[in-house]
Design a binder for these strands. Structure first.
Lengths: 246, 246
DNA sequence: ATTGCCGGTTTGTCCGACAATCATACGATC
DNA sequence: GATCGTATGATTGTCGGACAAACCGGCAAT
C-alpha cells in the first residue's frame, strides 16, 4: 500500500523567464528582427535580477531564437538558422554513437527522393546555384575544398525542393558526411571524377526535370560513397569522430 | 581601390567558456554521467567570474550537453536527449513557416524506407514494444490519446531500425504531425479505424520481416493522412501553428 | 559629406552576499 | 542492525550593486 505522489519539480526562475519569452517568439507575438527590451527593463518587468534575465537570454540565444547582429550589441528576435540547428543535431548524433553506415543509410533513403522533389520544384535560380556549386567543385584545389563543395551541391539540390523540412533533415547528414568523405577522397583517386560525373548528370536531369533520371543518378551517386568507403578500407561500423572546435 | 579587411569579431567570454567545455564533451574527454566541477571551481580555472560561468552553463544545458538529474542540483554531462533535440528542430521548422504539405511530403519520403529498415532490423523486443503501442492505440479513450499513440507506434517502428539518424529525423515530423492530426481525426470518423487497420498490418509485416509489404502498408498509411486532411477540409498549404507552451 | 565630439544607453564582466537545498557523516533511537 | 534526526560543509539560485567598453544618435566643425 504505497502511496504515490507526483514528482514536484521546482523550475528555476531563469528557465521560466526563458519559457515565457520563447513562447512569445514561437507565437509570433515577437516577430523576427524585433528588438527585445533592454536587460534591465526585462528584469524590471519580470521582477527578477538582471543576472537571471541574462541566463534566460543565453538559453534562447543558444536555441537560435535570439541573435545578435554582427557588430551590434542589440539582441533581436530571429528564427533559428538552419546551420545552427543542424550543428546541434549532428552533435547529438555524434554523442549517440552513429556509425558511418547509419549516416549512409539515411542518405540513401533521403537523397534520391530529394532529387525527385528538386526535379519537380526547381526554379531557374535554383539551377543557377547548383550549376555554380558544381563549377566550384570542378575547380576545387585541395581535398578539403572538394569535400565542402561536394556537400554544397547536395545542399543546393535540397534547397531546390523548396521544402524546409527536407533541407533541415539533410543538413546534419552532410555535416556528418564531410569527415569520412575527406578520408575517402584522399585514398580513392577515382572518387573525384566519379563524383563530378554524377553531379553533372544530376544537374542535367534537374534541368530537364526528368524525375526518374534524377532519382537514378542520385542513387548511383550515394551508392558510390559506400563503394568508395570500401575501396578506402573505411569500416562502416566505426563511430564517427567529432569535428574540430568551431 | 578599396582595401578589404576581414571582419573582426569579439567573442564574449561566456561563449568561449561554453565552447571549451562543449569541445571537451564532444571529444568524450568528459563522459556521460561525469560530474562537472562546481561553478566556483570552474570560475577559478577559467579565470572568469562565476556569473560568466553560469551563462556558459545555461548555453550548454539548453543544447542538452549538460543536464541536472531530477531532484539533484549537481550538473552532469549528458548526451542530448532526442526529445529535446527534436523539440528544437520542430521549433525551428515552425518558425520557418513549414506547411502541412511539407511535413507530409517528408513523412512520405521517410516512413516507407523506415518501415523497410525496421522489417530488416527489428528484434523480438522491438515487436513487443510496437505491439504494446498498437494495443494502447486501440484502447485510446479520447482524440488526444489516439493521436499521441498513433505517433508512438511510428516512433517504435523508427526505433526498430536501430538507426539513430532515422529516429532523430523522424521525431520532429511526429511532433509537427500531432496538432493537425488531432483536427483530422476529430472531423473524419473513419480515420481511426483506417489508422488502426494499417498499423495492425504493419505490425504483422514487421513480424514476418516482409520488407515489401511493410513498405506498401506504410505508404498506404501515410497517404491516408493526406486523404484525411482533404476530407477534413484542412488546407495543406497552411502554416502550422505552434503547439502549447511546455 | 565627412569627421570629431558628447551624452545617454546597453551590454559584458566583475564583486560580494545570502537563503535554500543537497551530500554526507555521525550519532540517537527503536 | 536498520532507520531516523541532526549537524556540517558544499553547491546552486538569486540578488544587489558596480564599472569599463562599446554602441546610438545627434550636433557642431571642417
Amino acid at each position: 500500500m504505497s502511496v504515490e505522489f507526483a514528482q514536484i519539480q521546482m523550475e528555476p526562475a531563469y528557465r521560466k523567464v526563458a519559457a515565457v519569452i520563447g513562447a512569445r517568439i514561437r507565437s509570433r507575438e515577437l516577430r523576427e528582427g524585433a528588438r527585445l527590451p533592454a536587460e534591465t527593463e526585462l528584469a524590471r518587468q519580470f521582477g527578477v535580477n538582471r543576472s537571471t534575465v541574462r541566463e534566460a537570454l543565453r538559453e534562447l540565444e543558444s536555441r537560435g531564437l535570439l541573435e545578435r547582429r554582427p557588430g551590434s550589441k542589440l539582441m533581436t528576435v530571429s528564427r533559428p538558422r538552419q546551420a545552427s540547428v543542424a550543428a546541434g543535431i549532428s552533435d547529438a548524433l555524434l554523442l549517440h554513437d552513429v556509425t558511418a553506415r547509419d549516416v549512409w543509410e539515411a542518405l540513401m533513403i533521403l537523397e534520391p527522393p530529394i532529387a525527385v522533389a528538386a526535379a519537380r520544384a526547381r526554379t531557374g535560380a535554383d539551377l543557377e546555384q547548383i550549376g555554380a556549386a558544381a563549377g566550384a567543385l570542378a575547380a576545387a584545389a585541395d581535398t578539403v575544398q572538394a569535400v565542402q563543395r561536394t556537400a554544397q551541391v547536395l545542399r543546393c539540390i535540397g534547397a531546390a525542393t523548396h521544402n524546409p523540412v527536407l533541407r533541415l533533415a539533410q543538413e546534419p547528414l552532410l555535416l556528418l558526411l564531410e569527415p569520412s568523405l575527406r578520408v575517402m577522397i584522399d585514398k580513392v583517386p577515382q572518387a573525384r571524377t566519379r563524383i563530378l560525373n554524377a553531379q553533372q548528370h544530376l544537374l542535367e536531369t534537374l534541368t530537364r526535370q526528368d524525375e526518374a533520371a534524377a532519382q537514378t543518378w542520385m542513387t548511383r551517386h550515394i551508392r558510390d560513397f559506400k563503394k568508395g568507403y570500401e575501396l578506402a578500407g573505411i569500416d562502416l561500423a566505426v563511430h564517427l569522430a567529432p569535428r574540430g572546435v568551431d
